[in-house]
């Protein structure tokens, strides 16, 4: 499931389940090419094992000019990678799925944000995990810096 907002105003999609979501923490990615964009991923600091975690990717045009993005999918495709402290990937959103290989041309006005959301059921063993967002384009994908998530017993 993917939800999208424009400028943090309009929300289209499905209501989230009543998971115990704590205060979200935003991690800002290192500068991305083009450097007019900021890509971030937001997750809870901590969650109990088996509960659902909301993962939010935000792609913001930080420039004063309109930016045209060449994203993929009729519904914009994005990946979320959850890895343990040893680097072992425990969940990848796009693992074992087939996506339509279409370019989605999306314009972002200055200051506008594209928001993409999904949920992950934290079935992994207790520990600390990194969560990274990836937004494919028709060239190099846009990647967030990792956010940290603690899965409690």
């Amino acid at each position: 499931m993917a939800l999208c907002t424009w400028g943090g105003v309009a929300l289209c999609g499905v209501a989230l389940c009543g998971a115990a979501l704590l205060v979200p923490r935003t991690v800002t990615a290192a500068p991305q090419p083009p450097d007019t964009l900021r890509v971030t991923v937001t997750v809870s600091d901590s969650v109990r094992r088996g509960e659902t975690v909301l993962v939010t990717l935000r792609l913001t045009n930080t420039s004063d000019k309109r930016v045209t993005l060449y994203l993929t999918g009729r519904t914009i495709t994005f990946d979320v990678v959850v890895a343990g402290s040893d680097g072992q990937v425990v969940w990848r959103r796009l693992d074992h799925v087939t996506t339509q290989q279409i370019v989605h041309v999306k314009a972002l006005a200055p200051g506008e944000t594209l928001e993409l959301r999904d949920r992950w059921r934290a079935a992994a063993p207790p520990g600390t995990y990194t969560v990274t967002g990836v937004i494919p384009t028709d060239r190099e994908p846009l990647r967030t810096a990792p956010a940290h998530l603690r899965v409690a017993p």
Binding site: T77, D79, R92, R93, L94, D95, H96, V97, T98, T99, Q100, Q101, P136
Partner: peptide, 13 residues
Amino acid sequence: ILWGGNGAGTQFV
């Protein structure tokens, strides 16, 4: 006619 692929971009359908 190609229409799909995996997330890694290594397999097409």
